[in-house]
Deep mutational scan, measured.
Amino acid sequence: MSGNGNAAATAEENSPKMRVIRVGTRKSQLARIQTDSVVATLKASYPGLQFEIIAMSTTGDKILDTALSKIGEKSLFTKELEHALEKNEVDLVVHSLKDLPTVLPPGFTIGAICKRENPHDAVVFHPKFVGKTLETLPEKSVVGTSSLRRAAQLQRKFPHLEFRSIRGNLNTRLRKLDEQQEFSAIILATAGLQRMGWHNRVGQILHPEECMYAVGQGALGVEVRAKDQDILDLVGVLHDPETLLRCIAERAFLRHLEGGCSVPVAVHTAMKDGQLYLTGGVWSLDGSDSIQETMQATIHVPAQHEDGPEDDPQLVGITARNIPRGPQLAAQNLGISLANLLLSKGAKNILDVARQLNDAH
């Protein structure tokens, strides 16, 4: 009898209710805020589980004197976190989706994509230029951005401005803007500013005609071990179906173009009346040469937790077992079709030249 009692006690200790789920994140304040929001949602869904947040620095956090596009290494903000995932030191990792490459290392998958916040870019102005827009900034004003995508589009749109690289986390960039006289304004992701509670610093939100956004911008991705079915089931509740389908289309477009950090590629997606609209573009580094096109596809946005595919093969690095396969494939095909259209119009040449120029500098 006593033996059975011990077995029952052991089973209770090993039951999922007692389990601590370890969540990996970057150390920056924004990353911690984003991770806290994901953990809060998981806690609400699984009140019996405990969650421990483990923060670590990544290569991208450490190399702050070089433009991201020049470092010449993929997975700048993800490699150390993936290493911890691989060694079973954490069970899942919360990322900004735009930091996750469209091809993940073997053994990993994006197990959830959370509801997207505003994906557009924002302009934050130096205190002396508050009330201005990019259009009304004085001639030769210097605007800071760490992104080739932003610089290429904005140089084309605002030729009277000069664009220079600015690195560091959000706090560091804002301090550089406010305390030094080098920059009249800087460009940042609206979602990051909003998550930090800095709505009052948003001086201008850039519309798609001015600057399309990065693939996955404004959404959070939760990376897990691809074979860890328990954790895949656990994080599945975080999937937002519309965000998922938009981001599958965007990531398929980028992957098929073979774009990345070192080339200016941008997108804009919208879901309306059962249609998914995808606009994508590529630019030369100075913005003088560009190709942009829009395509659409009829896609039914499923309700969360309709029964999805059981075999769960990944699409552009994403596993969404609780979302039907048909809409996911339709979104992926839309991204591939748009990429093929741009490639047929000469996108590869623009991107190759951009890559060579970026590598040469």
Results as ranks from 00 to 15, higher is better:
V38M: 07
V39F: 07
V39T: 08
A40M: 14
T41K: 09
T41I: 12
K43P: 03
P47K: 15
Q50G: 06
Q50M: 15
Q50F: 09
E52N: 04
E52Q: 00
E52M: 03
I54G: 06
S57A: 05
T58M: 12
T59H: 10
T59V: 08
D61A: 00
I63S: 10
L64D: 09
D65S: 10
D65E: 15
A67I: 15
A67D: 15
A67Q: 08
L68D: 09
S69A: 07
K70P: 09
I71G: 09
I71V: 09
G72I: 13
G72L: 07
E73R: 11
E73H: 15
S75C: 14
S75R: 11
S75H: 07
F77M: 01
E80D: 14
L81A: 04
E82H: 03
H83A: 13
H83F: 11
H83D: 12
L85M: 11
K87T: 12
N88T: 13
N88F: 12
V90R: 01
V93T: 06
V93P: 03
H95V: 09
K98L: 02
D99G: 05
L100I: 14
P101N: 08
T102G: 09
V103W: 15
V103S: 11
V103R: 11
L104G: 08
P106W: 11
G107P: 02
G107Q: 13
F108L: 14
F108T: 14
I110N: 05
I110V: 11
I110L: 09
G111S: 07
A112K: 00
C114F: 08
K115L: 13
E117T: 06
P119R: 04
A122F: 03
A122R: 02
V123Y: 02
F125P: 12
P127I: 14
F129I: 08
G131D: 10
K132L: 10
K132T: 10
T133M: 13
L134D: 03
T136L: 09
S141W: 05
S141L: 10
S141G: 11
S147T: 05
L148N: 00
L148A: 02
L154I: 05
Q155M: 11
Q155A: 14
Q155L: 11
R156F: 05
R156N: 12
K157V: 10
P159Q: 10
R164Q: 08
I166P: 00
R167Q: 09
R167A: 10
L170E: 07
N171F: 04
R173G: 02
L174T: 07
R175G: 08
L177S: 03
E179G: 08
E179K: 08
Q180K: 12
L188D: 02
A189Y: 01
A189W: 00
G192D: 05
L193I: 05
L193S: 08
L193T: 06
R195A: 03
R195Y: 10
M196G: 09
M196Q: 15
W198N: 13
W198R: 08
H199T: 06
N200Y: 10
R201Y: 15
R201S: 01
Q204C: 00
Q204L: 14
H207S: 12
P208E: 00
P208C: 04
E210H: 00
M212D: 00
Y213N: 10
Y213L: 03
A214W: 00
V215S: 14
G216L: 02
Q217F: 03
Q217V: 01
A219N: 00
G221H: 06
E223N: 11
V224S: 15
A226I: 07
K227G: 04
Q229A: 07
Q229T: 07
D230L: 03
I231M: 12
D233G: 07
D233N: 14
P241L: 01
E242L: 11
T243S: 10
T243E: 05
T243C: 01
T243R: 06
R246Y: 06
I248K: 00
R251C: 05
A252Y: 02
A252S: 03
F253N: 01
R255A: 05
R255N: 04
H256K: 06
L257M: 12
G259C: 10
G259K: 15
G260W: 05
C261M: 01
S262L: 01
V265L: 04
V267G: 06
V267Q: 01
H268L: 08
H268A: 14
M271P: 02
M271E: 15
G274Y: 00
Q275S: 01
L276T: 01
L276A: 05
T279A: 13
G281R: 09
W283K: 01
S284W: 05
L285K: 10
S290V: 08
S290Q: 00
E293V: 07
E293A: 11
M295K: 12
H300I: 11
Q304T: 07
Q304L: 05
E306I: 12
E306H: 12
E306C: 04
D307F: 15
G308K: 01
P309G: 15
V316F: 13
I318E: 04
T319K: 05
A320G: 14
A320N: 00
R321M: 07
I323A: 04
P327N: 02
L329D: 10
Q332P: 05
Q332T: 14
G335I: 00
L338S: 11
L338V: 01
A339V: 11
A339Y: 04
L341S: 06
L343Q: 07
A347Y: 15
N349W: 15
N349H: 04
I350E: 00
L351S: 07
D352S: 10
V353R: 07
N358I: 15
N358P: 15
A360K: 01
